[in-house]
Amino acid sequence: MKKTMRTLWQVLLVIPVVLFIYLPVAWLVISSISTRSELLSTPIHWIPQQPTFQNYINILVPGQDASEVAKTFRITLWNSLLVASSVTVIALTLGSLASYALVRLRFPFRQTMLIGILGTRMIPEISLVIPLYLFATRFGLFNSPLILIITYLSFALPFAIWLMAAFFNTIPVELEDAARIDGCNRIETLFRIILPISAPGLVSTGLFVFLTAWDEFFFALILTSTVSAKTVPVAIAEFTGRYVVDVGGMMTGGVLAAIPPVILSLIFQRYIVSGLTAGAVKG
C-alpha cells in the first residue's frame, strides 16, 4: 500500500517534468512538419491538418529544388560528429587525469590552478575569436576540422576538469586509502578504483562535453568557410536569409541535430547503470 502511494506521488511529479521538457520539443517537431501557412493559423493547429515531410526529404534525400543548406546538411552533420567526438575523447582522457590530481593530490597552487583553469573560460569567446582566426590562417588550419578540435579543447578541457572534480570529490577518501594500504600506487588507484566508480560521472561529463562541442556556433562560424569543415549549427544558421527565415527548415535541422546526442546517451545509459552497481558493490 505504502509502495503504491509512493509510486503514485512519483508519477504525479514526473508528469510536469515530462511536460516541461516535451511541450517545446513537441512544438519543434510540429513546426518541422507544418507548412508556414498552417503554422501561422489562429487558433493554432496543434496537429497539422496537412503534415508535410518535405523539409525532412530535402535534408535526407535532397532533390534538385532543395536549398544549398539542405543539400550539404549531411556533410556538416558528419563534420560535427568528427569534431565533437574527438574533443570528447581528448578532453575526457586528459581532463580526468588533471582533475584527479587537482582534487586528490597535495601540491602547491592547486586551488589557484583549479580556478585559473576555469579563468580561460571566463573571457567571452567574442574577444578570443580574432586572434584564433589569425592563428588558424598562419598555420594553414583555417577551414579544417582540426582547428575546431584544438579551439574547442580550450573550453572543453576546463569544463571536463571541473565536472570530473565534482564526481571525484563525492568519492570517500577512505575508499582510496584502503586501496593504497593494499599496495596500489596513485596511478593504479586512479585506474582501478576511482575511474570505475566514477563511471556515471565520466559518462555524464563526456555527454556534456560532447553537447557543448556539438552546439558551439561562433568559433565554427568564423574559423570555417566551406562544407569541408562547417558544422551543423553554422549550417542551420544559413536557413536565415537577409529577411526570410526558413523556419520549417531550421526546425527540421534542429530535430535532426538533436538525434545523434540522444542516441549516444541511450548507448551510454547502460554504463551509467553498471557504474552504479560497481560502485555499490565496492562501497
Binding site: 514526473v14 521538457i21 520539443v25 555527454l207 552546439d215 551543423v232 542551420i236 527565415v245 535541422g253 546526442p261
Partner: peptide
C-alpha cells in the same frame, strides 16, 4: 526521463532561440 533530459541540450542553441521567439 533521464534520456529525455538530454534533448533540450541537444537542440542547437540557434534553433532553440528561434523556436522560443516563435513560441
Amino acid at each position: 526521463l533521464r534520456t529525455s533530459l538530454i534533448i533540450p541540450w541537444a537542440v542547437p542553441t540557434i534553433v532553440n532561440g528561434t523556436m522560443w521567439r516563435w513560441i
